[in-house]
Design a protein around this nucleic acid. Structure first.
Length: 212
DNA sequence: GTACAGATTGAG
DNA sequence: TCAATCTGTACT
């Protein structure tokens, strides 16, 4: 959980950052509990020229103003009246671009390792296929990962390079051959030209990449 | 003030 | 395939 990603990491174009984020860990502190998840799927929304972007045409509203913040700030919003979507702003201040975090693979933290080691019953559960399957399913979508990490409007604009309750860390090295790309999800309203752009990135054959 | 649709999800 | 559920945004 060490080696927190710094400002320099995020002040780059979202098309770069979205790929670099694969394999990185999101660490979330809730009271004395720590949750961590490996980022396995992202989408880039690279700027105001992108018709699928909330900031299309340099549109700036109370809802999307966090997109304009310097790289490393959280842009979070509600869709369909019930699901939060976690984005991280990238690039320079004043230019609206961001990366949508679409899926995480939950990581067994040291904390839970110790708890498991001290409790043989939990050890058995951890080994069971059932447990593995359920672990892989709690954060395999943008709405689900926010529910799992307990993220909501209160994180709007949060600086992940400074925050004490959420940050990103180095995680695991992902080699380019392990990265796949495809069209972004759920943005058909933007028209085929933009919906077809291969700006969704994910780790090949990872079980936590979102379905559909 | 009112209408409308959405960067999703899980059930049928 | 469809409804749930709600708020930002646009328009009367």
């Amino acid at each position: 959980m060490k080696r927190r990603l710094n400002r320099l990491f995020f002040v780059k174009p979202s098309l770069q950052v979205s790929k670099l984020l694969l394999g990185k860990y999101i660490v979330r502190k809730i009271g004395r509990k720590t949750l961590a998840g490996k980022i396995v799927e992202t989408e880039a929304y690279p700027g105001p020229y992108d018709k699928a972007s909330h900031a299309y045409g340099i549109k700036k509203t109370p809802r999307n103003r966090a997109e304009y913040l310097e790289g490393g700030h959280i842009y979070i919003y509600l869709v369909y009246g019930m699901y939060w979507q976690l984005n991280i702003s990238t690039g320079k201040e004043g230019y609206p671009e961001c990366v949508l975090i679409r899926a995480l693979e939950p990581i067994i933290t040291n904390q839970s390792r110790i708890r498991i080691a001290n409790n043989p019953e939990l050890e058995n559960i951890r080994e069971s296929k059932l447990e593995m399957d359920s672990r892989f399913c709690v954060a395999n979508g943008p709405g689900k990962l926010c529910r799992w990490l307990k993220l909501d409007k209160s994180f709007y604009g949060e600086d992940v390079t400074k925050s004490k309750r959420i940050w990103l860390s180095q995680g695991e090295k992902i080699k380019p051959p392990q990265i796949a790309s495809g069209p972004r999800i759920g943005i058909d309203y933007a028209g085929a030209k933009w919906a077809k752009k291969p700006w969704r990135f994910y780790i090949k054959s990872n079980p936590c990449v979102s379905k559909r």
